[in-house]
């Protein structure tokens, strides 16, 4: 069961929304709470830094492709990093460990193709949600997103795709 860390990063490199969760897809073993991420504490405390460091690569990769989805751009100690960049220069970063249990490991090839696609879907819909949030006149760019509704919908998305 993979664990995920999803973050939306604003234009000043500031995280505006964070979500940690684990995959709902494969069978839940019963011991742990479903959807609770399995990152070890030492990884947890650097997760925002990992996504922050991925910005270097994102900014480099954005010039070389036409699509918003940048795909898998980096890996850090067995954590894969996928990214998506929006028209307004908002970055969506997803860090995940491929084989669950918090240790390192390479993703199995059968899983990979499918994963890439669902992550792309996830990013696209997350972007839609963000745009809806941006339409709110009381919200301005780079503010933290605190809406419980946004959070709820994001979790539904996570459950649907990852």
């Amino acid at each position: 069961m993979s664990s995920y860390y999803f973050v939306i990063i604003g234009t000043r490199d500031n995280p505006i929304y964070e979500l940690e969760f684990s995959s709902f897809r494969s069978g839940v073993s019963g011991i742990q709470v479903p959807g609770k991420s399995q990152f070890s504490p030492s990884v947890k405390e650097i997760l925002p830094f990992i996504s922050h460091s991925a910005l270097d690569i994102i900014e480099d990769a954005q010039w070389s492709t036409n699509s918003f989805n940048l795909g898998k751009i980096d890996s850090f100690y067995g954590l894969m990093i996928n990214a998506f960049i929006s028209q307004g220069n908002i970055k969506y970063v997803l860090c995940y460990d491929a084989n669950g249990s918090g240790t390192n490991g390479s993703s199995s090839p059968s899983l990979n193709k499918n994963d890439e696609n669902s992550i792309k879907q996830f990013f696209t819909e997350a972007n839609e949600l963000y745009v809806k949030c941006l339409l709110n006149p009381f919200y301005s760019v780079n503010n933290a997103i605190t809406s419980p509704d946004f959070d709820h919908r994001m979790k539904l998305l996570a459950r649907k795709y990852l």
Partner: peptide, 27 residues
């Protein structure tokens, strides 16, 4: 107040790896 300020790294955006370097230093 809603205008976004210009970033300092506009000239070298995507051309340096300072943020990546920082995380290793932090470790």
């Amino acid at each position: 107040p809603y205008k976004l300020e210009k970033r300092a790294d506009i000239g070298i955006m995507g051309l340096a790896r300072f943020r990546q370097s920082s995380i290793w230093y932090i470790l």
